[in-house]
């Protein structure tokens, strides 16, 4: 884990706001994320945490606020000021997005190798042998057997699909990965394996991560800091273990108390 204090934050979010008519999706959210830092966004369904993630990725356009990202040349760029081409290039090289629904994050009819290789081909790789060996290497890192490289994710279990999504996203060496409930809907034992894999890769690669989860145990295991959202607003934030063990806000206390053992 890099301290990151020398080069400043990787991601700066300020005043991020999105309304759906009269309903608030997300209101005035602000935070910084350092390189190598894992930030969990927790809250119930409808708290605005997924909206926030979509705003950061600019899948949604905000009504107000900015998302700035430190490019590899050190400049802090406002994502809204980048051209569509630049933004998309950034998203498929320097960013990753692990979706809750693997069908949204993967090409279900394309082989595992093709899924991992897509980003490489997207940035100009044109040597089949090298693309394939890089894909094989990454499948190994996410614990998918080498002989499954030509199988499509349709034939994979839920846990394998999520691991494949991780390989597909990490193959270009991104510095920032957004994760939207990556472990929900999986069996507990499968969840544990996936969490451990994410935890290990994040530490090894020094990834900065914004992870949206309703599962406080996931937040505890993976994140350094967390943000608690309710009704589209941030109501509490801080060190993950501090927020979980000494929650200040009534809602956070309720959230923590509602969990069996976080």
């Amino acid at each position: 884990m890099s301290a990151g204090a020398t080069c400043g934050p990787l991601l700066c979010v300020r005043g991020l706001t999105k309304r759906y008519g009269h309903r608030i999706g997300c209101a005035d959210v602000a935070f910084d994320l350092d390189p190598g830092e894992v930030l969990a966004i927790v809250g119930e369904s409808g708290s605005g945490k997924s909206t926030l993630l979509s705003l950061i990725a600019r899948d949604l356009a905000p009504d107000a606020g900015t998302v700035r990202y430190r490019l590899r040349d050190g400049t802090l760029a406002d994502l809204a000021a980048l051209s569509e081409a630049e933004r998309r290039h950034l998203m498929r090289t320097d960013w990753g997005f692990i979706r809750q629904d693997a069908a949204q994050g993967l090409r279900m009819g394309v082989s595992a190798g093709g899924n991992v290789g897509e980003r490489l081909m997207g940035v100009g790789a044109r040597h089949y042998g090298r693309i394939r060996s890089t894909a094989a290497e990454w499948l190994g890192k996410v614990e998918i057997a080498a002989d499954r490289i030509d199988d499509p994710p349709k034939a994979f279990s839920g846990g394998m699909r999520q691991r494949l999504q991780i390989a597909r996203n990490l193959v270009t060496g991104p510095r920032l990965v957004l994760m939207d409930e990556p472990t929900s809907g999986l069996d507990v034992s499968v969840q544990a394996r996936l969490l451990d894999l994410i935890r290990r890769l994040v530490a090894e690669l020094g990834l900065a991560v914004v992870i949206v989860t309703h599962d406080l145990a996931v937040a505890r295991l993976l994140s350094h800091r967390m943000i608690v959202m309710r009704g589209g607003r941030v109501i509490e934030s801080g060190l993950t273990d501090q927020v979980l063990d000494d929650p200040a806000e009534p809602y956070t206390q309720l959230l923590v108390a509602s969990v069996l053992a976080a």
């Binding site: 301290a3 204090a5 544990a192 451990d196 935890r199 350094h224 800091r225």
Partner: peptide, 26 residues
Amino acid sequence: PPREILDLRRRVIASVSQFLRVIPRV
């Protein structure tokens, strides 16, 4: 701020509690 506390925990403060918070599979 949180990141300074995390940094202290890494380099300066060693905590040993009664219970080990288990990390699966490690």
